[in-house]
């Protein structure tokens, strides 16, 4: 390993200076990129889920082509990895992980949470998924099968959770408000 004598903050300072000098990335461009990146958030994915629950043709589009479904909600997807959406069903629960690094559907959910990037999450998801879900307070019925999704390559995956009981007659905005980040990765399940 090189630069062992430098702290990472110093490395960033050096990179910042050199990339600006070389015209590769200036401060204004970096600041603008931060603003754009901060704008992506789980509310976007939640709006997609709520629409899928209330608009059957949209649900069909979302399962067939997540990228188009995101774009239909005004979420910028150009130049980003394709989005795949996996639907939970009464007897089947999906759980997304990236055991190799931290691939995450950032375009629709924002930055990956801390736990998603942790070694413990990455190790457990493929080997003891039911126990892992309990760490998030999620107890699946024994008859519900778990399908783990190891996100290894060019797609990014999100989960379409099941619409919870007790939400009959709710509009999309009210439904979106109960959908959390973890529901769309499969560590939690939305409730009314």
């Amino acid at each position: 390993m090189i630069l062992t004598d430098l702290d990472e903050h110093d490395i960033l300072k050096g990179l910042r200076t050199l990339l600006a000098q070389k015209g590769i990335a200036g401060p204004a461009e970096i600041a603008e990129r931060i603003v754009q990146t901060d704008a992506a958030n789980p509310g976007q994915g939640a709006a997609m889920v709520a629409r899928a629950w209330t608009d059957p043709p949209y649900r069909a589009l979302m399962l067939a082509d997540g990228t188009k479904a995101a774009e239909a909600m005004g979420i910028p997807m150009r130049g980003l990895p394709p989005l795949g959406v996996l639907e939970n069903q009464p007897g089947l629960h999906h759980l997304v992980v990236c055991t190799l690094c931290s691939c995450y559907p950032r375009a629709v959910l924002g930055y990956p949470p801390f736990w998603y990037k942790s070694a413990a999450y990455r190790a457990k998801a493929v080997r003891s998924p039911r126990a892992l879900l309990r760490e998030f307070g999620t107890e699946l019925a024994a008859e519900v099968a778990i399908r783990v999704v190891d996100s290894t390559a060019d797609y990014r995956w999100m989960v379409l959770p099941q619409r919870p009981a007790g939400t009959e007659g709710w509009d999309a905005a009210r439904l979106a408000a109960i959908v959390r980040e973890g529901d769309m990765i499969g560590v939690t399940i939305p409730s009314a």
């Binding site: 960033l12 990335a25 970096i30 600041a31 901060d38 930055y111 942790s118 070694a119 413990a120 003891s128």
Partner: peptide, 23 residues
């Protein structure tokens, strides 16, 4: 890592994290 608890608490990114990500 199987015996380590998953830290499920939220951790906010700081300015360093955001700048590295943007670069």
């Amino acid at each position: 890592f199987l015996c380590q608890a998953v830290d499920t608490a939220p951790h906010a990114l700081d300015a360093f994290d955001r700048e590295v990500d943007a670069i």
